[in-house]
Design a protein around this nucleic acid. Sequence first.
DNA 1: TGATAACTAAACATTA
DNA 2: CTAATGTTTAGTTATC
Length: 363
Amino acid sequence: MLGRAPGKSTTVAARQKYNHKYWREREIYRRERGRGSSGQQKDSKETAPGWMGPTMPLSKKAQSPSSGLGLTHGLSPLYREAEAADLSLSLSASFSKAEDEELTSLSWLHESTDLLNSFSHSGLRSVSPLQDSDGHPLPPHSPTSSSPDPGDPSPYDLAMGANRKPPYSFSCLIFMAIEDAPSKRLPVKDIYGWILEHFPYFASAPTGWKNSVRHNLSLNKCFKKVDKDRSQSIGKGSLWSIDPEYRHNLIQALKKTPYHPYSPGLVTPSTSPPGSPQAYHSPPLWPGSPFFRKNGGVLLQVPHGVIQNGSRIRSQSLFPVIRPLPISPVGSRTTAIKICSGRLSDSGRRCSPLPLPLPTPQR
DNA sequence: TGATAACTAAACATTA
DNA sequence: CTAATGTTTAGTTATC
Ligand SMILES: [Mg+2]
């Protein structure tokens, strides 16, 4: 007994072999042993045929105590539009894989057809209401003294949702960070930087989140190291990028997020909009996407509990922190998050220089 | 309940 | 050597 799960190699090569497989087997292994795990997290099962992968996207949760999730009943969260534009490329490719997630692709494809024009009415305005009406966008309040995030059951007290853990999973955070980069590639250090810049929560976060970021980069299939040419003289590590094959997965995950991102107005400009009140929730705007900048760099953080929206929204518990993105260069030189100024065409499709990683599609 | 996605901690390994 | 990076195991938590 006891012998470590599958794998236990000590060599790099062997280790690389594992990876995703590990996750699947891990569950089996544990289950076999009799002890398993339990619990759950995630929300849409249909997206995952078997297992989507390791730390794959999907799912969100953000650990909000309220629990509830609006469309939790899984399925049909309304995916649509936006992807068409951005995913166009990965689209075709997704079918060649057929391994684990192709199913996913199908699903989204399906859905997308349905809600084509969905809500286009105000795209990015979700920000308005919140605006901490009372003023005080959260004071600096001390960085705390103890552990600010754990289960601290004192949500209502400190009214600032500022330092609340963002509703995005690490995968999403990383995704947004990379997408926000001009070249779609960032070294881990800059990923940290992006996250810190946009989510103050981590500024004082104890630690460990960086570990999680790295862990995610490695484990998640969506993220690939680009490395190779030593042109950029980056220090230690290499640049990370989003694997186009899986990009839509990340987008999907993001869409399940409270204030999700991709906005509607992109794909079909005019179209009729109000067609049906998708009421569900239409939370557009998110940092990282082109819209983000378009908005002048506004970023909002979700409070915690907003997700429910359809079911039981606890009054105005949402006080997103809307803060103008300061154009200050954080500090890392390598950084590239310069928040460009202007630019951004209406077409949204401004990516000419694709990263083009995928050195060896072997998996 | 069981499955699964995500978080967290930590033990290595690799490399600048 | 040290520290930043990467990989990989494991335990736990939360939701369906
Ligand atoms: Mg990876």
